[in-house]
Amino acid sequence: MKRLQHIDQQFCTKEIPRFRAGDTLRVHLKITEGDKERVQIFEGVCIKRHNDGVNSSFTVRKVSYNVGVERTFPLFSPRIVEIEVKTRGRVRRAKLYYLRERRGKKARIQELKAN
């Protein structure tokens, strides 16, 4: 049984666009530098989505200067300004860990055709 549901209700109030593993996302993040605040964008493929109330999270992977970078975000974090779904990918698993061993052409994900 899931306990402490009222906490989920209290903190999971944000509108989240529909997305799943395989989708290419643009995550708009609030970044605090000293006393200045600005928005940074982290763009990459969502390789994991974990659904568990306030504990929900998702991981975005991108290859930056030939180095794989993964960031895991709390889904309901107030520091996330916006999650933009750029493309939907056609994938056959929920967790795309296999992308870590692939680079270049092999790491491509086919785009999901709208039906």
């Binding site: 903190f11 306030v54 107030p78």
Partner: peptide
């Protein structure tokens, strides 16, 4: 004790 959870503080940190 009812259990543990993660919540966000006023700065948006877990």
């Amino acid at each position: 004790k009812l259990g543990m959870a993660q919540v966000f503080d006023e700065n948006g940190y877990r």
